[in-house]
């Protein structure tokens, strides 16, 4: 494999979690323990649970604007309040230990102090008192991390999507899915019923214990550097999927979208937390790494039609593949 490094590497590429270990992609329960570093031809990723990068302030500002326009991106069923507080405490503790220069967390009984030097913010709040933080525990948490947050309750031998803040959804709707079972949420995904992948994934998740953090990645493609591809904003981005196919600017417009999902059993409430971090890189950017250029070109060419349809990439994937492999 030719892995000659380009002279200058964008910070995004250096930490980009390129998701394809082979020239063909199929669904699998591709879970692995968190916090293992993965070396790539452009750098490495995976050594942290929470990824803060150069887009931190910009992405938090974007989330804030989305939540103001559409508060339904945050949903929390009543019984998930303790889970939301647990998520907040767990993530703030993690931030403080992963970014000790920039973040500081301390607690005495229910009284907590949080210092985020990257944002220049300092907060004091009381565990269990929703009014002690702007937006409550979950809304506040979403103002501190680039990750989308999904909370699942475990009961009746199943997982239920009962809360979360999702502003950067890849073609789904938090407001629509809240309250559904994990298996129902994944109902539209082709092939997985036959292959029992989601059933197995649920079995795995239900057995996760606190302290055993796992991760998986997922991918699709997005036209433009657009994080918010939720169902709610489909009229804004849907038409791009047709127009990009014949556009000479396709390599600059079309992005590979990779989600790194961390799966965390929250240690106090027992709820499951998904931290979903979205990374975008254009074909042009990816093509500066020859191994990625060739691999993505082959994956897009080979992908079965039903999977390409579900991902919403059928109209342009062959054009993208031709550019990657031919140009």
């Amino acid at each position: 494999m030719n892995t000659a490094l380009p002279a200058t590497l964008d910070h995004r590429l250096a930490r980009f979690p390129f998701p394809f270990p082979e020239d063909a992609y199929r669904y699998s329960a591709n879970v692995e323990p968190a916090l293992t570093t993965v070396a790539t031809p452009a750098g490495s990723w995976g050594d942290k649970l929470i990824e803060i990068d150069g887009d931190y302030r910009a992405e938090l500002a974007e989330r804030d604007a989305i939540l103001r326009r559409d508060p339904s991106r945050l949903a929390l069923l009543d019984h998930m309040r303790p889970a939301a507080w647990d998520a907040l405490l767990t993530v703030l503790e993690t931030l403080a230990s992963e970014y000790p220069e920039d973040m500081e967390f301390s607690r005495a009984g229910r009284a907590c102090r949080w210092n985020n030097r990257l944002l220049g913010e300092e907060w004091e709040f009381t565990v269990g008192d929703d009014s002690s933080l702007p937006g409550g525990p979950l809304g506040f948490l979403s103002s501190q991390v680039q990750e989308d947050i999904v909370l699942l309750d475990q009961r009746e031998d199943a997982l239920w999507l009962d809360g979360g803040v999702v502003t950067f959804a890849a073609d789904w709707s938090m407001g629509f899915d809240v309250g559904m079972r994990f298996l129902e949420v994944h109902g539209p995904v082709p092939r997985i019923r036959e292959e029992e992948i989601i059933t197995r994934a649920q079995q795995f998740l239900m057995r996760l214990q606190p302290g055993q953090d796992y991760r998986r990645s997922n991918w699709t493609m997005t036209v433009g550097r657009r994080l918010d591809t939720s169902i709610e904003t489909y009229p804004e981005w849907g038409p791009d999927r047709t127009s990009v196919a014949d556009d000479p600017a396709l390599p600059a417009r079309l992005h590979l979208r990779v989600e790194v999902q961390h799966l965390v059993r929250l240690p106090r409430s027992g709820a499951l937390m998904f931290l979903v971090r979205t990374h975008l890189a254009s074909l042009e950017e990816l093509a500066t790494v020859p191994a990625w250029r060739e691999r993505l070109g082959k994956v897009l060419a080979e992908l079965p039609e039903d999977m390409a349809d579900y991902k919403g990439i059928s109209r342009y994937r062959h054009a993208a593949s031709r550019w990657l492999l031919g140009a």
């Binding site: 699998s28 329960a29 879970v31 323990p33 994934a201 079995q203």
Partner: peptide
């Protein structure tokens, strides 16, 4: 190996 819990295959 990945999950070491009998799930990932």
């Amino acid at each position: 190996n990945l999950c070491r819990q009998g799930v990932c295959g």
